[in-house]
Write a protein that binds this DNA or RNA. Structure first.
Lengths: 150, 150
DNA sequence: TCCAAGTGGTTGCATCATGCAACCGACACT
DNA sequence: AGTGTCGGTTGCATGATGCAACCACTTGGA
């Protein structure tokens, strides 16, 4: 991946992808959000090679998405926990999940749904709204520069 | 990328990433959503090598995210346009953009914002809500199996 | 009609990231 | 001391990525 070329890009999407845009990182974050904390748990859950997992965890820590902490079970090992920055990726994962559920399975629906724990009912679809509450489609939006003459 | 290992995964996130989880695809889709249609436009905008662009456009078409159409300017060339499936990736891009704006720039804010065209005001942050409208955090949600005993 | 430039690629080759498997030190349990 | 687990590191093979050169077709101009 030739990430370096866009590292300093203005586009926030490019910047985000530069951090979490690889195959494993988002799956690690997904697992972390489900409560996975230990190296071995990630490895078993993802089926990823250990060296790859090592480098991914390291870069996620460097980027401030995960943090290391002493193991909560008292053992001598450490755990990887999401930082607030990492937790803020929740909408990204939900958006990917909803798109995948709708478009990446045969019957048009996946075999799993995201539900609200309190009621056990499926969550709403993510939707973009204007400041005053109108539902926005791509055509209703525009990227605008801040600070400079735009 | 060892995508084949997870191609048949149950997880919709993994399936999504299998389709759009590489560095360039989402940037291509971003540009397409901004109105870019021609091969040369994508190439200039992204700065990507032409062979890479060729393969990415091809796989995006194969996956039903882009479609080819005769050029709208009457020339003999073709254009790449988003399908409905592709347009449904809008929330994914917005989520990535909002996260990037908040976490991937020095001052804590990016140099661009997504605005509502009609009013020119910044859009709301994406938020996940339950069926009855409550705001949901990761801890408030759970992945549930459908169809089978779960 | 011929040449030149633009468009949309393909091909060859180098390099880097990824993946697999083997190895390894620290700790745990007996 | 011996065996097993945890959390890695190292070496090596392979596949994806990137660059640059090349190519076919179209377009435009004289």
């Amino acid at each position: 991946m030739r990430r370096t070329s866009l590292e300093g890009a203005d586009c926030p999407i490019a910047r985000s992808l530069d951090v979490i845009g690889d195959w494993w990182s988002l799956l690690i974050i997904r697992d972390a959000m489900l409560g996975v904390r230990r190296f071995g748990e990630f490895q078993k859950s993802l089926g990823v090679a250990k060296n790859i997992l090592t480098t991914r965890l390291r870069t996620l820590v460097e980027h401030g998405i995960l943090d290391t902490a002493p193991a909560s079970d008292g053992s001598a090992y450490q755990e990887y926990v999401l930082t607030p920055k990492g937790r803020d990726l929740f909408p990204v994962l939900v958006a990917l999940r909803q798109w995948g559920e709708e478009h990446c399975f045969e019957g048009g629906r996946g075999s799993t749904v995201l539900v609200d724990v309190e009621r056990g009912r499926p969550v709403r679809k993510l939707e973009l709204r204007s400041e005053d509450g109108r539902l926005l489609s791509p055509a209703d939006t525009q990227v605008k520069k801040r600070g400079r003459s735009g």
